[in-house]
């Protein structure tokens, strides 16, 4: 039991992100309302973004913005700056998430205009008729 506790304390960020991700996954599978499904997808994306950013963290390291002249003169130790690559990847992922949310909301508005509801089973009933 104490081994499990030590494991959780050493990697508590990953545990939090997995729990957050599963909240999003449950909302995507279990909820019947399309808006709630979209919110679940956004929670899922947020969990992944947090996961990537926390992978780049180093202990006692600064932000990846450096003093240009000092670095040109003396060079820099890689351990004093956090890993910038996950930040770059997640910057693009955030933009994709905004685009996906916008398109999904537009399609939902169109569905509501056609069928008068956003509940999944009612839409399926109306399509089958």
């Amino acid at each position: 039991m104490s081994g499990l506790t030590a494991e959780i304390v050493a990697k508590y960020n990953y545990w939090l992100y997995v729990i957050l991700m599963m909240v999003g996954l449950y909302a995507m599978i279990g909820k019947r309302n399309l808006v709630k499904k979209l919110l679940g997808m956004n929670i899922f994306q947020t969990a992944i973004i947090l996961f990537y950013v926390s992978m780049g963290v180093k202990r006692d390291a600064g932000i990846p913005i450096v003093n240009k002249y000092e670095v040109l003169k003396n060079g820099i130790d890689a351990a004093t700056v956090v890993n910038p690559l996950p930040h770059v990847l997640m910057l693009t992922a955030i933009v994709v998430s905004v685009s996906v949310t916008g398109v999904a909301l537009a399609v939902m508005l169109r569905i509501y205009r056609e069928y008068g509801t956003l509940e999944e089973d009612e839409i399926l009933e109306k399509i089958g008729k």
């Binding site: 933009v95 905004v98 685009s99 916008g102 537009a106 205009r113």
Partner: peptide, 17 residues
């Protein structure tokens, strides 16, 4: 590009087209 697309998304989604 981002400014224009954000604005166009808001216009279309808020007024329903």
């Amino acid at each position: 590009a981002v400014m224009s697309i954000m604005l166009s998304l808001y216009w279309d989604l808020s007024s329903g087209g």
